[in-house]
């Protein structure tokens, strides 16, 4: 499956990573190499083989429904990013994390 510049841009958009046209061209050649490596898989007949998501065949453990967490908002918000666009303040206000306006 040959990869195109358009594929790179589409995937980069899905992954929310800005790529310039020159980035995309460089990325294309590298990813094409990696996909070439991956293509080896297609030669294997895997019909009827159960996919393996985990290395051990175990079941999910369940947690008791008991509150164990305390409010650490202030501690956590010390790591808030810098707001940007001219402001050097942390991107928090009134206990909320601040982002550019979300439009629905």
């Amino acid at each position: 499956m040959a990869l195109s510049i358009e594929d790179i841009k589409k995937v980069a958009h899905l992954a929310r990573i800005e790529v310039t046209d020159s980035d995309a061209a460089a990325t294309l050649s590298k990813l094409t190499g990696i996909l070439g490596l991956i293509e080896q898989m297609q030669a294997v007949d895997t019909s009827g083989i159960e996919p393996m998501s985990h290395s051990q065949d175990l079941n999910q453990r369940l947690r008791e429904d008991v509150v164990t967490k305390i409010n650490l908002r202030d501690e956590f918000q010390k790591n808030a990013p810098i707001l940007g666009n001219g402001s050097t303040l942390p991107a928090v206000g009134d206990g909320l994390y601040l982002v550019p306006k979300v439009i629905e």
Binding site: D94, L96, K101
Partner: peptide, 9 residues
Amino acid sequence: AVDDMSGID
């Protein structure tokens, strides 16, 4: 809550 921004709770 804050001008021109959305707040995330």
